[in-house]
Nucleic acid binder design. Structure first.
Lengths: 244, 244, 244, 244
DNA sequence: AATGAATGAGATTTCATTCAT
DNA sequence: GATGAATGAAATCTCATTCAT
């Protein structure tokens, strides 16, 4: 829907005789304003509990206008997901591709970047919504897998393999390590969007920076070949080497 | 009139002991049946998207009957949480309390047990629901923190501290390590309840057992003092050294 | 649930062969107990807002038992009305028939008696319910007219006519005077059942006794022929002269 | 069904092309249309027995629209009460304030006006509903007392006191006289809304005008000082003398 | 006769969506 | 294009009534 809607809008704008100004700017900004409003609300309340009218109000338009741009709440939801996740991975792959330093440093950089650019961002809340609602929107599953899970696995997994190939890391099951790397990050992001807002008695305030550092410390040390160890032989699951 | 009525009653009473009443038995089984149905549906669809009538139907009763046992959908949900989570931690604490072996083995045992008794169980899906909807039900936040998060932190954190105290583990920030330990487990559990059902193209089938082993391998190795290292000084809450 | 009921039943069962007593007595008392409970609740909450189960509980029986005696809530309501209104008038007519004193004294006596025997009694609340619900139960209209309105009119109207005939009262439209006599009484009774329970700020506490006396004083003085007046000619249904 | 709605709609249709907003006009008319529909139904069936959807249908709108204007049935009811009762007393007090004639004539005027402007109007049926349901809506009690009972007492009571002060009336307990004055009026109004619709066999058709005149005649004659009487000393709240 | 678990029609209320202006 | 009044399907929850025990 977005593409043709937008091009139609462009035509309409061209016909718009006099003003072409404020209105113009606003009209083109509309979809993004609506997606931003929707993201914020979906992340806060979830899909079902977010009312369409609220999204419209937060975007500064009326309920009717929302439906001018997105034919249903469900389509709006999908558009939010697409918009916010699709561009995520490219950047990471780019960074990884041209990196020259040690694999440990690369992993540290990727994780730090992920956190700054995404985990610490409202968009990270989308994971919460996806995980929660994917079973109610089965078509999202494939989308999420393609857009997020597979690339993330490739990114982090690739980095692990690089380390193994260069003799920096022990050979380990790539896929599983990749998950062990990313899971605490996503979990922490989700957590902050669920509990972070209204702090709860008895739970220590979590410091994400410390958490990040600790996690990285643990995993890198877990991955790295110890000075005293002989480089292990390859086996397990084909190309992946086990530790012991 | 009275005599025969009463003798009839006596006969009835006599039979009463034998069958005790299908009705009776059903009545006693109801709460569990309802909780099971509710758990399954909440986990599948989330709280808001689950209709009360659906829960009733799955439990084989009518809408009205559900409300005979739980006064509202929200109370039903709390009952589900209580029933499925509250007894979990106690057992773990007990095991940990009397354990004699190494801290690494204890952690391995706890994680393995957690997975078998909970993570690999429908009840693990509750985490998904809680994370997704806790902001709409603030009282649940505290409830969940008290019942689940705090005890879990105590259990795993305690184990880490034990290892540090015994010189087996490097000194590290307990709370953060605890989270790094548990996050991948919960994440995996949630993931299985979101995506596990309808497998998605392009994603490798995740093998939880391997994942568990790998995660444990990574983290334990990350925690443990290296043979060549001098036993580090205790410094909790201090700056953490990165492995690299 | 009421313990006395249960223990009583237990006792009855124990004595079972011999007694035929308590149970019997209870069974015969049931309808009245149910009607009393229903009266109290209907008067307090109205017909629609009274739940059948509440009536049963107040009568010390189970919901099912209520339906053993009355086939529906509606029939129960009618039975309550019948039971509580039907015997009201007879007594008054009896008193009036044999009275020897002045008509003013007779009216005073009737009104006082009405108040003591009925107006000041829970049963007076029925008027409230009838007036409120008669349009939802059209058949009650005729019943109420026959059992209450017509006899009351006859009682008080007859007394007025007696006074007129004996030259004590001015000739006035009997029916209207009768209504003017009874209306404040019923109104006061209803009022006490509506507002009397939870006193309201700003309204003076009403003293029913004083109200009664004042009303009687006003009306009797309004009715009675003045010493200085020539005894007026009878003219029912003719135009009524205003006092001023 | 509602004539006003239909005629308005017809007018609107006629102007349709030119106008700039049937919708607008309808929107402004809505609250009154809804209140009228609600008044009619509440008076006919009572609060609990009136379904919100029925009110909407009678006002010519859908269920949802009703809730656009009033957030709950209870609020709708309060709005009906406010709209129909709150402006009533002001007018009376105004009339009374500037009146120059005798107190008897003033009372006659007030009562006549009350009847024409209110008692003989659908709004009078509200009294029925209030009395019947006030115990289920305790906050209405205070509202009704403030808006209706206290002002009415002040109006009529003030008039009685005026008569006493000017030597026209015997000194009597103001509050009680006030009630004795108003009670038959309200009672009659309620009665007409309960029984007036479907006439009942055996009860004389009540002529409200005659009833009003008779009541007024009785009470005024009861109140007024007799020519042969010495003007009594003031003694409020003291024991009241019976006429006989 | 008595019970109370079970039912399901029905009431209130919400909200995604439409459409006249 | 933009609005927001209007709609009605659907969800939660209640309660009169039934019926197996």
């Amino acid at each position: 829907m977005p593409p043709d809607v937008l091009s139609e809008a462009a035509v309409a704008d061209a016909e718009c005789l006099a003003d072409a100004g404020v209105r113009q700017r606003r009209k083109e900004a509309r979809p993004q304003e609506l997606l931003d409003a929707a993201l914020a609300l979906f992340v806060e309340k979830g899909f079902a509990a977010t009312r369409a009218e609220e999204v419209a109000k937060r975007a500064g338009v009326s309920k009717g206008t929302l439906y001018l741009y997105y034919p249903s709440k469900e389509e709006l939801f999908k558009a939010v997901v697409r918009r916010n996740l699709s561009s995520l991975i490219a950047e990471g792959l780019e960074v990884a591709g041209s990196y020259e330093g040690s694999s440990a440093d690369l992993l540290a950089l990727l994780i730090q970047t992920w956190w700054e650019r995404f985990g610490n961002t409202p968009a990270a809340g989308i994971h919460k919504v996806i995980l929660a609602e994917v079973r109610n929107f089965p078509e999202l599953a494939q989308f999420y897998a393609d857009e997020v899970m597979v690339p993330a696995d490739r990114l982090f997994g690739g980095c692990v393999e690089r380390g193994v190939a260069r003799g920096e890391f022990r050979p380990m099951p790539t896929h599983e390590v990749s998950l062990a790397l990313i899971a605490p990050l996503i979990f922490m992001a989700i957590h902050r969007h669920s509990f972070g807002c209204c702090p709860v008695h008895g739970t220590a305030e979590m410091d994400p920076e410390l958490m990040l550092k600790t996690h990285l410390d643990l995993v890198l040390r877990g991955l790295q070949v110890r000075p005293d160890e002989p480089p292990a032989k390859t086996h397990r699951k084909g190309p992946v080497k086990t530790a012991a």
